[in-house]
């Protein structure tokens, strides 16, 4: 099997799974199933990042999104098991659904025609392919991007304190 065919088969298979997962998040009624569809989506996105050569980001994607954030979502869904609101049975007749779909189609069409279609051929050139390695990312985060790095660590600290305060608060 030639490498081009291998790449293409892998990419279109993974993107099909990712799109199915995204559809599942939006249209499945049970929150647990929606969360599982999102896990599938995040996992395949991690694999697509591997294809793009971003090893470090891909494994962080699987660890952070699929491994931590979605487990937290499932935890909350289970605690709220019987209290989640019923979705409308006639979702497709809902006015909101039709407006949402129309606006999405229009915006997507515009973006695709104006932004994405011109990029189909023009990109692609030689460069150092080691940018996805943990060493490269570590080096850039301690030299060029040291301020963003410190700011996101403060943000995470604020997030931790805020969530503890929300959890401890008596109403």
């Amino acid at each position: 099997m030639s490498s081009t065919l291998l790449n293409q088969v892998a990419f279109y298979l993974l993107s099909a799974i990712a799109i199915l997962g995204a559809l599942g998040v939006v249209f499945l009624k049970s929150p647990v199933r929606a969360a599982l569809a999102l896990v599938a989506n995040f996992f395949t996105l991690g694999l697509i990042y591997f294809m793009l050569g971003n090893q470090m980001i891909g494994i962080s994607q699987i660890m952070v999104y699929a491994g931590a954030i979605m487990v937290l979502f499932l935890f909350v869904i289970m605690i709220l098991k019987d209290q989640t609101p019923e979705e409308d049975k006639s979702l497709f007749q809902d006015r909101r659904f039709i407006f949402g779909l129309l606006s999405a189609i229009v915006i997507c069409g515009l973006i695709w025609a104006l932004v994405i279609n011109p990029t189909m051929q023009s990109f692609g050139g030689e460069m150092d392919r080691s940018y996805g390695s943990p060493q490269a990312i570590g080096r850039s985060f301690f030299t060029t991007y040291v301020w963003p790095f410190e700011i996101i660590s403060i943000l995470l600290l604020v997030g931790i304190v805020g969530s503890i305060m929300l959890a401890k608060r008596k109403f």
């Binding site: 291998l6 790449n7 990419f11 294809m51 793009l52 050569g53 692609g124 996805g132």
Partner: peptide
């Protein structure tokens, strides 16, 4: 070729 060389096979 799976890792990194996709830019030749699949358009952006």
């Amino acid at each position: 070729p799976l890792a990194g060389a996709v830019y030749e096979d699949i358009p952006l």
